[in-house]
């Protein structure tokens, strides 16, 4: 059992949980993830990226958006509650080395997993520039953490309520032209990562992306997370989660993410109903 020691609500449906997991806190490296299952038998297992860790306290930080049945249930847990099953750290850590100039692009809740990578890249002696994006001001997260690494972090929102109005690909293109990065790390919604990879391709800048596909065990056993990388089948859980964004078959990945869409819509509806009932009860 892994106890929740702190909980912060970052936006209407984005939460940051600090959870006891001493082994994971000690072993985890930038780029790795965990799989959690809330209860026992009938709960599902979902992967979440590790946003940060406190080795001394033996805790890890998990950031998530309440979008499905499990993340919704997770958002209802309180400090002192426990998560029954937590497995990790999973996947290969990000390859951190002195590349020279590194651009970190974090979109939506993808800003959270990009933070430890930005931190490690900086520590390894790289010059780090950061671009963070969100749909609107309220959904921008981890701004203090990101600014602590790059005080000139470029902020972009879809509606212009904070920073520049537009998409992360625009400043990314500018940096490719004017700053000439050696490596770009892009983490966010699949569609954002796809377009970041398309943006950097003409400049020949190596672009790492972190894929978050459907998974059950996270140890290589189910093959549900398979993606095509340069025409070869790879498992995100054991071969990834990071891959060369220029080699990912994005369209296939986006397609496979929708495998259980019908069921997800149904669950989501149930969650919203549950939410309404909870709110109604409070009144």
């Amino acid at each position: 059992m892994n106890k929740i020691v702190s909980k912060v609500q970052l936006s209407p449906d984005v939460f940051l949980l600090e959870v006891e997991a001493p082994y994971i806190a000690k072993e985890r490296k930038a780029g790795q993830f965990i799989i959690l299952q809330l209860g026992e038998d009938f709960d599902e297992r979902i992967p979440l990226t590790i946003a940060d860790a406190d080795v001394e306290k033996g805790t890890i930080f998990l950031l998530f958006q309440a979008v499905g049945a499990t993340t919704y249930k997770l958002s209802l847990l309180k400090v002192g509650d426990s998560i029954a099953n937590l497995l990790g750290p999973l996947g290969h850590p990000t390859e951190i080395k002195p590349y020279g100039k590194v651009v970190i692009v974090g979109g939506g809740i993808g800003v959270a997993p990009s933070f430890p990578i930005a931190q490690a890249m900086k520590k390894a002696g790289n010059e780090v520039r950061i671009i963070t994006g969100a749909r609107n001001k309220d959904l921008l997260i981890f701004q203090d953490r990101m600014h602590s690494i790059d005080p000139e972090t470029i902020v972009v929102t879809d509606d212009g309520t904070a920073g520049r109005k537009g998409l992360v690909t625009e400043p990314l293109k500018e940096l490719c032209e004017t700053w000439h990065p050696d490596v770009v790390v892009a983490i966010g919604p699949p569609i954002m990562m796809k377009f970041c990879a398309l943006t950097t391709k003409p400049y020949g800048v190596k672009t790492l992306v972190s894929l978050n596909t459907i998974m059950i065990d996270g140890t290589g056993m189910c093959g549900g997370c398979r993606v095509m990388i340069d025409g070869k089948m790879k498992f995100v859980c054991v071969d990834g989660p990071e891959f060369d964004g220029h080699l990912v078959d994005w369209d296939n990945m986006l397609l496979r993410q929708k495998t259980y869409k019908e069921r997800e819509v149904e669950d989501n509806h149930k969650c919203r109903m549950m939410n309404l009932q909870v709110e109604g009860g409070n009144k």
């Binding site: 059950i216 065990d217 290589g220 056993m221 189910c222 093959g223 549900g224 398979r226 993606v227 095509m228 089948m233 498992f235 054991v238 078959d249 296939n252 397609l255 496979r256 929708k258 495998t259």
Partner: peptide
């Protein structure tokens, strides 16, 4: 670690390894 056939179309929606299906 499930083996696949390495034939075209194995990544369409609706293709599963037996491991995933059974798990």
């Amino acid at each position: 670690l499930p083996k696949f056939m390495n034939i075209p179309g194995e990544n369409y929606v609706g293709v599963f390894s037996a491991n995933e299906y059974l798990t």
